[in-house]
Nucleic acid binder design. Structure first.
Length: 632
RNA sequence: GCCACUGUAGCUCAGUUGGCAGAGCAGCUGAUUCGUAAUCAGCAGGUCGGGGGUUCAAGUCCCUCCAGUGGCUCCA
């Protein structure tokens, strides 16, 4: 038998030689990293005998496939430990996920105490270095083995006839599994249980399954590195940092409805200003339409049929009024309020109005998922020919915006959902136009099949915070439905009446979610242009207050947001407080500074102070702010 | 909305088998007037998430509601 290896070399081996032996001979020094193998593109156990000529390569934790194998083996370990702890538990399935693995059990609700026992059982198994052993059974033997577990019987029934039914033994525990696995539980010493929760069971009325989630690493130090990163992420959580920096808060009688505090409003106003500057340049006009509309408007727009479960509805004089969840109906009514000419198009109507969405209570999540929100929204009414150039302008703007904020972004093309307005052919066309614009702008994108809005397909912008988590913010939707439903038309150059298309779009998305992401992305270290307080002035002693106040006025006259921290506390303590508050610039004024007209400036994150002339300091900060630099 | 868990001072937390509600930080007052990450002392701050129940006695046990957290479902 001839085996070809990844470096192009070949080995002649006897049949039934294990993958491990072949790979060990091929790369003895790297052997400890190998946790499985790839034979002709198929992952296999290292212990698996090779029975034919072909291409063989190793899999390590650094390969995606190897990573998944380790996650899946970790899931088996959890199942083994849980069944040891609760013998009547029925394991169902335990696949790898994007961030690790889970295993679902048909069992009574778990308690934290159960989890502790499970962890101990896992540690015992790891210490015992139990091998994962594959066995292939007949279908009948497998059915007999799992007779007590109807979930497993269901999986067995799904295995195509003719395909082997394989199980893996880990010590006395046996699980139905296609494999492959790591050679032994020794590989799982970096396994960590992230949590447990109930999930929807199979059929209605069945008890929920209990899901145990975790993540595995081949070694403890790798796990510790991951846990450290998670701790950092927790420290950046906007739900903690936001109230701490007095940006926003939530109160019990208003679940999902944010309160913006003075510091937070500074940031929101800066975002607003950033967007409106662009609106002016890009030919938009602003409108403001009602927050409530009678039900009939939503019947026209389709919201009543497709979005009502997410709407707040109020009854007024025996009439139902819905709080608007989106701005589109108002824009449609304005467009349709008089006859329109093609000369008015593209008509770009921007509206930053509060929107209300009755999000399910369990989905609320700080600023990232709220019930009252404000989008940097606009509706652009266009002719067919104007669509693509407009889309390209928008994509360029999004690129510019993400660069300004220092955020990484990605696109998702969300296509026709299960229930939708209009004709499938219109949707196919709109989806193609969006895809073409993305390609023309040189952007890569994923496709979210069925994720579109009920009235239009969309390009969603996903932002990544610095810890790699993804959030949807901006959106560009190409809609042929709503203009028709509102009977909108314009008179073309040909004298005929035509229906416009409308592009619904946001750039930053909502102030709420975008600010939440920024808090986590910056970890509270705001760029100077966004920082609620840009400069904090510290007089060394009370004698220097007048000098400090003079500096404050000078900086304020220059347009900066400045505050003074008087001498009630010692200087080192005030410096510490400023550093903890992440103030970009700390300006100290004492005898020396007053004598020579300078200011001693400590830039956030640096340990030493530098002397500037007052004018020079003001000019440099103003410049950073004007250019929207990311760092002070 | 579903399942589990959590809720004690502004924040972080302690509070034993049911038996007098505590600490640190923040805040306030006073002293100190200080040179780049914590000066000292004192004071104040609590419907123990809300309501109901068991008990001689409830922060602690039970029921219920609310909010939050994690997942699920959802997500223009």
């Amino acid at each position: 038998m001839t085996i070809s290896l990844p470096d192009g070399s070949h080995q002649e081996v006897a049949p039934e030689t294990s993958a491990e032996e072949i790979l060990a001979t091929w790369a003895p020094d790297r052997r400890p990293k190998f946790l499985a193998a790839l034979f002709n593109g198929q992952p296999i156990d290292l212990a698996h005998p090779v029975r034919a000529s072909g291409a063989l390569g190793p899999l390590t934790f650094d390969d995606r496939a190897g990573w998944e194998i380790l996650q899946h083996s970790s899931a088996h370990l959890v199942a083994k430990a849980l069944v040891e702890t609760i013998p009547e538990a029925l394991p169902t399935a335990g696949p790898p996920t994007d961030e690790g693995f889970y295993y679902d059990f048909d069992v009574r609700p778990l308690t934290p105490g159960d989890l502790e026992s499970v962890v101990r059982a896992m540690q015992r198994s790891i210490a015992a270095r139990e091998p994962f052993r594959r066995r292939e059974l007949t279908r009948e033997a497998a059915e007999a083995m799992f007779a007590r577990n109807r979930h497993k019987l269901g999986y067995i029934a799904e295995i195509p006839a003719g395909e082997a039914v394989s199980v893996y033994d880990t010590g006395p525990f046996t699980d139905l599994c296609r494999g492959p696995h790591v050679p032994s539980t020794r590989w799982l010493e970096g396994v960590h249980i992230l949590g447990f929760s109930a999930i929807e069971g199979g059929a209605a009325g069945e008890r929920p399954l209990q899901r145990v989630r975790g993540v595995g690493f081949p070694t403890k130090p790798e796990l510790e590195k991951y846990l450290k990163l998670r701790a950092e992420a927790a420290a950046r959580d906007h739900r903690i940092l936001g109230p701490k920096q007095e940006l926003f808060l939530f109160a019990e009688p208003a679940p999902g409805f944010p309160f913006w505090l003075p510091n937070g409003m500074v940031i929101v106003r800066q975002l607003e200003r950033y967007v409106t500057e662009h609106l002016r340049k890009a030919g938009y006009v602003e409108i403001r339409t009602p927050l409530l509309f009678a039900r009939t408007v939503y019947e026209t727009s389709g919201h009543w049929e497709h979005y009502r479960e997410n709407m707040f509805v109020s009854r007024v004089d025996d009439q139902e009024f819905g709080w608007k969840p989106m701005n589109c109906p108002g824009a449609m009514l304005i467009f349709g309020s008089r006859s329109r000419s093609y000369r008015e198009l593209p008509l770009r109507l921007a509206e930053f109005a509060p929107l209300h969405r009755l999000e399910a209570s369990g989905t609320l999540h700080g600023l990232l998922r709220v019930r009252e929100l404000v989008q940097d929204d606009a509706h652009v009414f266009v002719t067919e020919e104007q669509i693509e150039p407009e889309l390209l302008t928008l994509l360029a703007w999004i690129r510019e915006a993400c660069t300004t904020f220092g955020l990484a972004w990605s696109y998702e093309l969300s296509t026709r959902p299960a229930t939708f307005l209009g004709e499938a052919a219109d949707w196919d066309h709109a989806e193609e136009v969006l895809a073409r614009a993305l390609r023309a702008s040189g952007s890569e994108f994923r496709t979210g099949a069925g994720e579109g809005a009920f009235y239009a397909p969309k390009i969603d912008i996903h932002l990544q915070d610095s810890l790699g988590r993804r959030w949807q913010t901006g959106t560009i939707q190409l809609d042929y439905q709503m203009p028709r439903r509102f009977h909108l038309e314009y008179q073309g150059a040909d004298g005929q009446l035509h229906a416009p298309a409308v592009i619904h779009r946001t750039i930053l998305g909502t102030w709420e979610r975008f600010t939440g992401i920024l808090i986590e992305h910056y970890g509270g270290r705001w760029p100077p242009w966004l920082a609620p307080v840009q400069v904090r002035v510290l007089p060394v002693t009370e004698r220097h207050r007048t000098g400090a106040e003079a500096l404050v006025s000078e900086l304020q006259d220059g347009g900066l947001r400045v505050e003074i921290a008087g001498s009630e506390e010692t200087l080192p303590k005030r410096v510490r407080a400023a550093e903890l508050d992440r103030v970009p610039y700390v300006a100290v004024v004492g005898d020396r500074e007053i004598a020579d007209g300078t200011v001693s400036v400590r830039v956030r994150g640096t340990r030493e102070a530098r002397a500037f002339s007052r004018a020079e300091f003001l000019a440099s900060v103003v410049d950073k702010v004007r250019r929207r630099d990311l760092n002070p």
